[in-house]
Design a protein around this nucleic acid. Structure first.
Lengths: 100, 100
DNA sequence: GATTAAGTTAGATTACTATCTAATTAGATA
DNA sequence: TATCTAATTAGATAGTAATCTAACTTAATC
């Protein structure tokens, strides 16, 4: 499984989840994102860095601005992990499984 | 959206994610789960409490033992959240959306 | 080339969290 | 009822993380 601990750590902060939500529809600049939160720019920059490090977002510089975008590949890995939880083995029971 | 911050916080710890993985196939007792990790029982008990508080697991007492199980309802909410990220609006573009 | 604008990096502070040992609760059993 | 087992609760400690201000970097513009 490619689903890394960093991704889950990154998702554990509500600000960062909100950032990802804003990136659903396409790229946005750091400044555009930052001004939507009641937080200093350095704090926002920190959150971008965490998301980037977890590979949840992409970034590219265009002149003075930096555009951030959603990395759907890693988000898909996350979804696979969650789906796996729900799949089970089709033999749910009360009581302990034989082995694991 | 019913997806609570507590659930994401709970998922941010690898031990807790592993616990959820062990519950995929059915209920297990606290002791059975605990002995699979190189960690003291109180530490494991703490993790159970966090998962319970996030509503990710159910629990019931049976004599001396406590059986824990996966709460698939909340896991489904999580999956909905992740899927929503991927859905976007079908109009991805380079550059800023009009508004949000 | 000095200044302004967009963003990040550095360093400090405060709050939270994972883990441990020791003590406690709850149930089963001799 | 004394004791053994399963599990949690209490309290302490050490590491991590979110946020701020101040300082720096990179690019555009006058």
């Amino acid at each position: 499984m490619t689903t890394d601990n960093k991704a889950f750590k990154a998702l554990s902060d509500p600000t960062r989840r909100e950032i990802l939500g804003l990136l659903r529809h396409g790229e946005r600049t750091a400044g555009d994102l930052a001004e939507r939160f009641e937080m200093t720019k350095p704090s926002m920059s920190h959150h971008f860095a965490v998301l980037k490090n977890a590979d949840l977002i992409t970034s590219r510089r265009d002149g003075q601005q930096i555009w951030y975008g959603l990395n759907t590949t890693v988000v898909q890995d996350l979804m696979a992990w969650v789906m796996d939880l729900l799949r089970g083995d089709g033999k749910k029971r009360k009581g302990p499984p034989k082995e694991d």
